[in-house]
Amino acid sequence: MATMTPRMKAWLEKFGAHIGTATKQGYPTTIVVEQASITGDGVVAFNLTPAQANQIKDNIAQNPYVALAPHAIASIRAAYQFKGPAALSGNTLQVTVKEIYCTKPGPEAALRLDVLPLEHIVKFEESRWRDSGPPK
């Protein structure tokens, strides 16, 4: 499992994410969930509506690897992408984050962060953003 920083967790929990899924052959479907909860270093849970669960259940069954990107104002202020395997149980989607990327437009887009020591990731964040999470 990758280790998410407090900043990543705070933005993702408050604003949720666009969740990209695909069939085994790569046909994509994205849903938007406006809140998340995070346990441990990087397990992200989303409470889906029945319509959202129904929309992605076949994709998750055949290809559980998903991608998450922060929703709403967090797309601007917290340009990260998270990837990992997901499990759908009832209306709860749980994603174990295995990869973390910076998606800030420009030359740092696609920079992989989870391969760095945690203190280096935090330094990277501090050098690029002034906040440690969304406003309370």
Partner: peptide, 10 residues
């Protein structure tokens, strides 16, 4: 990807 790994481009 053709094998089903998604990417979201901002």
């Amino acid at each position: 990807s053709v094998s089903g790994k998604c990417n979201l481009y901002l």
